[in-house]
């Protein structure tokens, strides 16, 4: 196996970023919450059937802001990996996120989301409880939520399962995070008919932070320590905190109605080349 190729500790290929983004030692949502928030109270359940541990939700304090925090949870131990389904959310998780975001809107709390998932869970019960409907509803819901929404892509932005909590006013992305319509392996399997061609697919799909900044899908890239966030987690998390606070300060000045108009204009501009 080839070692992750880096120049001055920076990822060189798209697949290098994929490997760093998936690294088990990379900070996960609970690390970000611990480092970004001065306090945090977790809340559970969708009030329908379940509490999905793949979606962490709760209120916390970031600087002068009292915010709702949402995030995919891959887990940092074997037990947590299993309990949180490796960050693959069921419909219940998206419904929990919407329930609490509605509460944030009512009381004027901004929303901060941490995105890190291989994708929504492909399971029998997930389908039976409406995985497609839950994601669709979430996209519709966040598109006109009348409170600021700051999104941070911290690791893997896996397709619709990521997007469901990634519709917002400012989209931040960590330097080695990736964000894609399909996993490189999945794409290679379909279009190359060979999963081993994932590195080619990763390049072709343009999934790195640099690519997405150029495509105007993300607004800001947050630099990581050389070699990736796991080499110096506290520095990486501090940089994310600063970027979130900058965004929250900017968005706090915008009236809610204007915020929603701007968010629509932002969504509307994706692929508007005609």
């Amino acid at each position: 196996m080839k070692k992750t190729a880096t120049a001055k500790g920076r990822a060189k290929t798209a697949m290098d970023s994929v490997k760093i983004a998936r690294d088990a030692k990379r900070p996960h949502v609970r690390d970000f919450i611990a480092g970004v928030c001065s306090d945090f109270e977790e809340l559970h359940g969708d009030r329908l059937v379940n509490d999905d541990r793949a979606m962490v939700a709760g209120f916390g304090t970031i600087g002068r802001f009292k915010a709702l925090i949402l995030g995919h949870n891959k887990g940092s131990s074997v037990e947590e990996n299993v309990e949180s389904n490796f960050g693959m959310v069921n419909p219940d998780g998206y419904r929990k996120a919407m329930r609490l975001a509605k509460l944030a809107e009512r009381f004027g709390n901004p929303v901060v989301t941490f995105v890190d998932t291989p994708g929504a869970y492909p399971g029998r019960e997930a389908e039976e409880r409406g995985q497609a409907e839950a994601i669709a509803k979430s996209l519709e819901f966040f598109s006109d939520l009348e409170t600021p929404v700051v999104v941070v892509i911290t690791g893997e932005g896996g397709s619709g399962g990521a997007l469901a909590i990634a519709v917002g006013d400012e989209i931040l992305m960590m330097e080695n995070a990736v964000y894609s319509v399909i996993s490189p392996e999945g794409c290679a399997g379909i279009l190359w008919r060979d999963g081993a061609k994932a590195p080619e697919a990763a390049e072709a799909l343009k999934i790195t932070a640099k690519d997405l900044l150029a495509l105007k899908v993300v607004d800001k890239v947050v630099k990581e320590p050389a070699g990736g966030a796991h080499k110096n987690p506290s520095a990486a998390i501090a940089a994310v905190k600063k970027a979130i606070l900058d965004s929250l300060e900017r968005l706090a000045k915008v009236p809610a109605a204007e915020l929603v108009e701007k968010r629509y204009a932002k969504l509307r501009a994706y692929g508007n080349f005609y």
């Binding site: 598109s143 619709g160 509307r268 994706y270 692929g271």
Partner: peptide, 26 residues
């Protein structure tokens, strides 16, 4: 599903169309 040949911007069409539908309902 999404057209992977158009990468991330095809994914973004899911959000764009959903937002347009929210406005229609509103």
């Amino acid at each position: 599903g999404a057209r992977m040949h158009e990468g991330i911007l095809s994914l973004m069409q899911m959000a764009k169309t959903s937002a347009a539908i929210a406005r229609l309902k509103e």
